[in-house]
């Protein structure tokens, strides 16, 4: 190795801490914004999938298949470079990253939401309709709140995935945690230290998110056993 230093020397990591934290913040920002957008988009796609209008169902089906089927890496390249070349839409790296992550996660979440909605006992819907409530009110007041409880855990998983997937945004130069770690690792010739540190930061984020979803789930679970 021509280098006298031992494994795991963390001086460089400590002195670059602010850069790593900034990278971490960018990663969390991208993952969080993307997940939030994916929740909205995923719900719309799920509703289209459950629509009585055939064309909506087809569009939703194609959307889900496409964005679940294409690797994030490829999708990212298309959104960032492809859109610029093909239709002259030049997104900033961070925006392209957020859009890509949002589309990918919306593909997964649409299926999660669809199954959550379908899991609601038809008796619940009938009881609402029997009161004279419109289908829209039944959905908003009765189906959605109960489906939401069901999809909290998978939604938490999706957020966790988005946090880890955000590492791939490094390939288009988004200054997130992975990108910054790469550059620092190259600068100091200490890949092991920097990547380990990055890994720990992802891990901490994931543990915190899991705890958050657990709490949320408990809060909503308390009174929602069906009948």
């Amino acid at each position: 190795m021509g280098n006298s230093k031992s494994f795991f020397e963390f001086e460089a990591v400590v002195s670059s801490w602010d850069i790593l934290l900034k990278g971490f913040a960018v990663a969390m920002f991208a993952a969080t914004l993307a997940t939030a957008l994916a929740i909205i988009l995923g719900l719309v796609v799920a509703l289209m999938r459950l629509s009585t209008v055939a064309i909506y169902r087809w569009i939703a089906f194609a959307f889900t298949q496409f964005f679940r089927g294409v690797p994030l890496y490829v999708l990212l390249v298309w959104v960032y470079f492809g859109l610029a070349i093909a239709v002259n839409i030049n997104l900033s790296a961070i925006l392209a990253g957020v859009v890509t992550l949002a589309l990918l996660n919306a593909g997964y979440l649409s299926e999660t939401f669809r199954s959550g909605i379908l899991a609601i006992d038809s008796g619940q819907i009938e009881a609402g309709l029997a009161l004279g409530l419109s289908k829209q009110v039944v959905f908003k007041e009765i189906v959605l709140p109960q489906a939401f409880r069901i999809v909290i855990p998978p939604m938490g998983n999706q957020y966790v995935d988005a946090i880890k997937d955000s590492a791939i945004l490094s390939i288009i130069g988004v200054p997130e945690l992975m990108r910054e770690s790469q550059q620092l690792a190259n600068l100091y010739y200490q890949p092991f230290e920097f990547y380990t540190c990055a890994g720990l930061l992802y891990l901490i984020a994931v543990v915190l998110v899991s705890r958050g979803t657990n709490k949320l789930e408990k809060r909503f679970y308390t009174h929602s056993a069906q009948n």
Partner: peptide
């Protein structure tokens, strides 16, 4: 909906709304 609001129905499986309190169940309609 108009007809149904004039025709009340009670089911074998209760079908009360589990995420709403007793009074919220009743006041929804």
């Amino acid at each position: 909906s108009e007809l149904r609001s004039e025709v009340g129905m009670v089911f074998q499986n209760f079908n009360v709304f589990p995420h709403k309190t007793a009074v919220q169940n009743v006041e929804l309609g």
